[in-house]
Design a protein around this nucleic acid. Structure first.
Lengths: 249, 249
DNA sequence: CGGCAAAGGTATGAACGCGTAACCTTTAAA
DNA sequence: TTTAAAGGTTACGCGTTCATACCTTTGCCG
């Protein structure tokens, strides 16, 4: 008889999925994670600034003191750079500069311990679901425009910006799904995926392939072809997944 | 020009999906939420006990003091009942007794402020995705057995237990998807769905319909029919969704 | 050229949340 | 009647976080 079930009540570890440790981190760590997300998702491109400290602290509902400790860490890792004076701010460093600062040690530290299968499957579920929701419910003119716009931006993207604009396209689709929870979860998982992608080479072949899939995907979504959208997205995700599974042991 | 973009950097509120307030609650509230999930999901059936305080505190990584404050609240709401002495413990009260205690005021409080569309869409995405993953990857003999078993239990369920066993069936499928993240997210969203379901009448008609869908779903999953599994699950979710949308304003 | 406004940089002290640790009390099985 | 295991209680202390104020830097605009 297992220790955890001394009374024979018979519900072995059914509680496991829910009974995870509370507070994965303190406020400081959570804030760090969120700002890392902004950077990894490319919501603020390299060279541009984050909101001012006072504003950022308010939005995260933490004190400026705590926020500054977070920024201190990011600066030590070479991910951001602060400039004083009016029109100063906290600027996101381009990936090239950033990698130079610590040799990517911080990235490797973040990536190890990630359950790749978990991430890839969860990602696929969210993306395929979002695509299907958008196609099935249809998009109003304005919303369709947003999607088309995001796609267009990826078409004529310089190589260094491709990852960022691709992320934005997918994030747009997630937002258009009409489920804020889905959007937030996608943002979280995608930021992890981007970390993984940073560990492997960027192949132009895959990139062109990606672009064709994006086009087909958006086409299907806009014409309300739910099956087509789902299929296109699944294939698209499978491509990335195969790539990552291949390179990461 | 909007206040939030004084420099014209042009990234309006792209940050919104990520920049939510840190620490939705303190440790106390997070723990409360998790134990509520256990109860709402029926992971511990009415009449049975939660793990002992000392063990529960360890698994949640909180102190016994904090845990006891959580249990105090749950007791005040009539959801659990403590018994002292050896072979005592914290027992989950059956829904009938629980409702009597506070007249369901606590339930109504939890339910208001829920974005129903968000919940229903997110739920559908997760469930359909889990079904497809299971069908596509195939289930080993042991795993297939778990699913069949969970289905069988819902077949001959007394009406009062149906909700609980249905939840367990769906949770099993989520676990079999092979993505712990998906499982955890499903647990969270399903506990909200159960709250919503508690606000509307239970119709035997729907229940029978549900059962047919469950059977078809499991059948499709076990034969590796991904399209069929997805379709069955989507229909199943649509049913619940229509019900909830109809009854809740 | 000088000042203003907005940004980051610094310092301090209090408040609060939470953990640790020890103890008491109850209870049913052995 | 003993005892083990459960809930009930208390006290103290530490680390995080907040609130607040103030200083310093710097570019634009009058």
């Amino acid at each position: 008889m297992p220790d955890s079930d001394p009374h024979g009540h018979g519900h072995g570890d059914r509680l496991a999925p829910v009974l995870r440790p509370v507070r994965a981190g303190n406020g400081f760590e959570e804030a760090l994670e969120q700002i890392l997300q902004i950077v990894r998702l490319g919501l603020v491109p390299g060279g541009e600034r984050l909101p001012a400290e006072r504003e950022l602290a308010q939005r995260l509902r933490i004190s400026r003191v705590t926020l500054r400790e977070v920024l201190k860490v990011l600066q030590d890792q070479g991910l951001v750079e602060s400039r004083r004076g009016r029109y100063g701010g906290t600027f996101v460093r381009a990936r090239a500069e950033a990698a130079g600062a610590t040799g990517g040690a911080a990235l490797r530290r973040r990536v190890e311990g990630v359950d790749i299968e978990d991430v890839l499957r969860f990602r696929e579920v969210l993306e395929v679901g979002a695509a299907e929701l958008c196609a099935a419910h249809g998009l109003s003119g304005a919303r369709a425009g947003l999607l088309r716009e995001a796609l267009a931006r990826t078409q004529d993207a310089p190589l260094a910006e491709y990852r960022r604009l691709d992320t934005l396209l997918h994030l747009t689709l997630a937002e258009l799904s009409g489920s804020p929870t889905l959007t937030a979860q996608y943002a979280a998982v995608r930021s992890t995926v981007n970390d993984l992608l940073d560990c492997i080479p960027l192949l132009v072949r895959n990139l062109e392939h990606s672009q064709r899939q994006h086009t087909a995907l958006v086409e299907a979504v806009l014409t309300g072809d739910a099956d087509g959208a789902r299929g296109a997205m699944r294939e698209h995700c499978a491509g990335t997944a195969a790539l990552l599974r291949g390179f990461l042991t």
